[in-house]
């Protein structure tokens, strides 16, 4: 068993604008089961942060409990990290974000962590519009506790030992859309060409971004009868669009038919260039997206891609009118303005 990934690397590895190679964004070697989809998501996060040229110390990784929530150890070892309690990533991350809005927040969670025990926290974070990227590594089971159905498990889906799930699933994408998330995507760990741009777009989005990433659990949910297995997802995957994240103003080089490409400019200067794969899909129309998803879900399709994006998101700081400076950069006299200031505030509320 190897505990260390050799430091030797490919001599031709490209460097990003900071002069780092992809390998500079790695973490320690994964202890998850070999073949776990979560590891591919970690690799996609590494690729995305590297491609965006983000300094690792500007990222804060926050997670809950589960195999998925363990993964922040396996990427960005030079970033900040907080492995919180089961289902409590959203509140810890919200607090961190309120205290210091200058970091780039990456919440990593599981379907159990977010849709079962943490569903309340999930819902409120979405409503509030915390500026973050929320990745749910969705395998339909509690991987870490040996494969019980989670709240995203489809009705009728079969467990490894044969039990059938009788409960309705929670669709985190539908919930996020309903609760006002401003960037919503779904993807599959086995399709990095789709997943990497989705993560890049989410990290550059200045509002709450959810990516529901189906991520097969090879140990407990990759069998015949599962709707979260490699084979099932590959067969039912319907991608509505193809995303490219354009950093700096790169001209369109390929020829597209009129209406085939939509461009969404984000506040940080990046451009989301979307090529339509489904003709009648409009990712900027929230209600249409919800309808489309409901219809196609009933047809048994797993709809993936960038499902919704609001080019002008508002985040929690904007609605609360908080101070822009991180709290750790403010002095005591500002942070604790004293009894007179409190008296004044109370008076204003009377």
């Amino acid at each position: 068993m190897s505990y260390l990934k050799p430091a030797l690397k490919h001599p031709g590895l490209p460097k990003n604008k900071l002069g780092f190679t992809r390998r500079d964004y790695e973490g320690s070697i994964s202890t998850l089961c070999a073949g776990c989809g979560h590891d591919s998501i970690s690799a996609s996060i590494i690729q995305s942060v590297w491609e965006l040229g983000i300094e690792p110390h500007r990222v804060a990784k926050v997670s809950g409990i589960g195999c998925s929530s363990k993964t922040p150890d396996y990427f960005l070892s030079a970033s900040h990290g907080f492995n919180s309690v089961h289902g409590r990533m959203p509140s810890v991350l919200t607090g961190a974000n309120l205290a210091n809005r200058e970091l780039i927040y990456l919440g990593v969670s599981g379907d159990g962590d977010s849709a079962s025990i943490g569903i309340g926290q999930f819902a409120h974070l979405m409503r509030r519009g915390v500026n973050m990227t929320y990745i749910v590594e969705n395998n339909g089971v509690y991987g870490l506790t040996k494969g019980q159905f989670s709240a995203t498990s489809d009705k009728g889906s079969k467990a490894k030992k044969g039990a059938i799930n009788t409960d309705e699933p929670i669709d985190l994408v539908a919930m996020a859309l309903q609760l006002g998330a401003t960037y919503v995507g779904r993807s599959f760990s086995g399709d990095k060409t789709q997943l990497v741009p989705l993560i890049m777009g989410a990290l550059s989005h200045q509002g709450v971004a959810l990516i529901d990433c189906i991520s097969p659990c090879v140990a407990f949910n990759n069998h015949e009868g599962s709707t979260k297995s490699y084979d099932y997802v590959r067969e039912h995957n319907e991608s509505v669009n193809k995303l490219d994240v354009i950093l700096g103003r790169a001209p369109i080089t390929a020829e597209y038919a009129p209406g085939e490409v939509t461009e969404v400019a984000q506040h940080d200067g990046s451009v989301l260039r979307l090529r339509k794969l489904h003709e009648d899909y409009d990712p900027t129309d929230r209600v249409a997206a919800m309808n489309y998803l409901a219809r196609h879900k009933a047809m048994g399709e797993i709809v993936t891609g960038l499902l919704f994006v609001d080019p002008d998101p508002e985040d929690l700081h904007a609605s609360l009118g908080t101070v822009a400076t991180p709290l750790n950069q403010l002095n005591d006299d500002v942070l604790v303005p004293g009894a007179a200031a409190l008296e004044k505030l109370n008076a204003a509320l009377r």
Binding site: P6, H10, S40, S189, K192
Partner: peptide
Amino acid sequence: CIECDGCVDICPTDS
């Protein structure tokens, strides 16, 4: 092979 990318992701030399 089930095409899980496990080998792709771990390979230290991107081979």
